[in-house]
Write a protein that binds this DNA or RNA. Structure first.
Length: 351
DNA sequence: AAATGAGGCAACCGCCGTGTA
DNA sequence: TTACACGGCGGTTGCCTCATT
């Protein structure tokens, strides 16, 4: 019964990845595409758990990943989304396709938490980091918080009504949602240049840990790889990932290898926050100077909410359109800066 | 220059939902 | 139907680097 184990727990290597291991993993993915992770250690001979391979790929080796240097706008988006979604890093990351959930989580824990705490305690009274002054936002936040509370109640009611009268079939939506997960995965063209470059790079590197912590290494490494890759869509067509047996088709499983090539390409080509749903329709929410195209997939994040104790649990169960409305209303009523300021206040209130 | 502490980040752990035999 | 493995996700840990003393 059941499946065979993904990998033998005995003899599994842990700790930082070496350049050699990265080469092996990337080479495998170039050839086979991501997915079917349980077979990766077996086929490649890597002494790593399949899970570890997947993590290494999705969090580090995957092309298109932007590392470090969070822009002011990204920062604000994270704060805003965290206030809306709680610690749902994967959901937040779906709005920042160049960032991994792990990266966002780390950035939140190491930078933003402190920043917000500072702002909350009023130690950081002036906008030295791009945020408005705490005093100012406190004044604004009073009314905004009240307004948001009302919105929350309204949304909770609405969500409850919808939940109790679930006549509308959601299955189709769910199916679409699974396919519309934004992804930055785009290319798996074999590139021996990459391997050569990577090997050369690894020779310069004093230690594996230094290698692993060097974003620059990976950036250069992947830059070369990307340079030698064809159009992402083409590459993926050559490696139809969903064809792999055992590839998850769950609604959350489309992060790297289970999206369609076309969609991947679109997602990658679009600037931040611009995603198309599988049926081509999308809704647009203006936030700050950027436009967000909200997909139904995001809605599922709310509708499928089951975990308790989330910061925005009430919101999480509300239909996305309400959230969009809220965002729009706020943006229109207070201006974009205020919207961000409110998020800051909201976020700070969580601590 | 050496010791110590703090911060940052990659990777691991464990839980959960889903798929498979 | 059931048991079990996979994949995804969030929380946490531990190592490395940098700043301070």
């Amino acid at each position: 019964m059941g499946r065979p184990p993904c990998c033998d727990k005995v003899g599994v290597k842990k700790g930082p990845w070496t350049p050699e291991e990265d080469i092996i993993l990337v080479s495998y993915i170039q050839e086979h595409g991501p997915g079917n992770w349980r077979s990766v250690p077996t086929i490649t001979g890597l002494l790593r758990c399949s899970k570890s391979c997947r993590l290494r790929w999705t969090n580090y080796l995957r092309p298109g990943i932007k590392r470090g240097n969070f822009t002011d706008h990204e920062e604000k988006m994270i704060i805003h989304l965290q206030a809306l979604l709680g610690n749902r890093w994967a959901a937040i990351a779906s709005y920042l396709p160049q960032r991994t959930d792990n990266d966002i989580k780390n950035y939140w824990n190491t930078h933003l938490k402190k920043k917000l705490k500072k702002l909350q305690t009023g130690l950081d009274g002036h906008s030295q980091d791009g945020f408005s002054s705490a005093n100012n936002s406190q004044q604004i936040s009073k009314g905004q918080w009240e307004r948001r509370l009302q919105t929350d109640i309204h949304m909770a009611k609405q969500a409850l009504c919808e939940a109790l009268s679930l006549d509308k079939p959601n299955h189709q939506d769910d199916h679409n949602l699974a396919e519309s997960k934004p992804s930055i995965l785009n290319t798996f063209q074999t590139s021996t240049v990459y391997a050569q470059h990577h090997t050369a790079k690894s020779c310069e590197t004093p230690s594996s840990s230094a290698y692993a912590s060097s974003a620059d290494n990976i950036a250069r490494l992947l830059e070369n790889w990307m340079k030698n890759s064809p159009k992402p869509g083409q590459a993926n067509r050559a490696n139809p990932v969903p064809a792999y047996p055992g590839t998850s088709s769950s609604s959350e499983g489309a992060q790297s290898g289970t999206t369609t090539p076309d969609h991947d390409h679109q997602a990658f080509d679009h600037s931040l926050f611009s995603f198309n749903s599988s049926d081509g329709s999308h809704e647009t929410v203006s936030a700050d100077e950027t436009t967000i195209h909200v997909t139904p997939e995001t809605a599922s994040l709310f509708q499928d909410e089951s975990k308790p104790n989330m910061g925005a649990q009430v919101q999480a169960q509300a239909p996305l359109t309400l959230l969009e409305k809220w965002l729009l209303d706020d943006g229109a009523a207070q201006g974009h800066e205020d919207l961000i300021n409110m998020s800051l206040e909201d976020g700070a209130s969580l601590f």
